[in-house]
Write a protein that binds this DNA or RNA. Structure first.
Lengths: 149, 149
DNA sequence: TATTGTTATACTCTATAACTATA
DNA sequence: TATAGTTATAGAGTATAACAATA
């Protein structure tokens, strides 16, 4: 069996290239979050909730790229910190709806200027048009049909 | 202070878009690795070593997107499994050089056909030209100057 | 029976600092 | 003194399965 096909160079390996690109972008963002009291995961949860409004945990986990058991723990901690609320809707009491609180929104606002400045720098160095094109492609990549096998 | 600038939609947030895109690509690759006995991190180490040849741990950590303490542990385990060797060069005995073994290369070969097929599917669904263009941009993004502040 | 979320568990990675050996 | 790597430690995420409550 001729299964010793050479693999792509790692620079041209999509998973590795995506990871390395993310690592280079995350540097200044990690510095920002270090002074915020929330980690990357909690920041994503806040960002998704602010954008989408109150959300079921399953959907929230999917959009924030977290497993549901991880989100269960994270959401409990964030509720204790007053950043989100968790409620059970009367029409389906299996569900939990998470929602961002004013304190959570305030935390985002506190860092919005810094976040914008980090992004502006990338825009400047990378090029606005190219960046928009990259974001278009990343969005399209997410939308690809999931392989079944 | 007008620091309540609205943030980008999460779909247009570079860190989140990179993460979500990677998650959608990693699905079938995780399935592949599940039957290989190595996890994502060890797979990256093997891929980098196969490509670059024997490497110092600091450089290897950087290219495989791992912290050095993580790599120390991972490399020890991989050496025990016979996938890599670790040697101390005579000209600088502070260093450790890791190198892939024939068993490590065999492990990669075992999955090269499957890996190629996963990639071919993405090429087909996403478009070859578009994919190459995406990889170009990801490579360029990695090469951006690191922010200092 | 299927769905939603929680809990439990084992494993692993992350992040930081302290430490050793060598240069 | 600086560098390369290791060790230690605390914290957190990953992955899976089992479970409870509800539909």
């Amino acid at each position: 069996m001729a299964n010793d096909l050479p693999l792509r160079r790692t620079k041209r390996s999509l998973p590795i290239a995506l990871l390395r690109a993310r690592e280079s972008v995350m540097g200044p963002i990690r510095d920002m979050l270090a002074s915020s009291g929330v980690n990357e995961q909690k920041w994503r949860v806040l960002r998704v909730l602010q954008e989408r409004g109150p959300s079921e945990l399953t959907q929230l986990a999917s959009e924030a790229c977290l497993l549901l058991p991880s989100l269960t723990r994270i959401a409990r901690a964030m509720e204790e910190d007053g950043l989100i609320t968790r409620t059970t809707p009367d029409d389906d009491r299996r569900k939990t709806i998470a929602a961002i609180t004013p304190a959570g929104e305030a935390l985002i606002r506190t860092h919005s200027a810094q976040s914008a400045s980090i992004f502006a720098r990338i825009e400047r160095d990378f090029g606005l048009e190219r960046l928009e094109s990259l974001l278009d492609m990343l969005e399209a990549l997410q939308a690809l049909p999931r392989a079944k096998d």
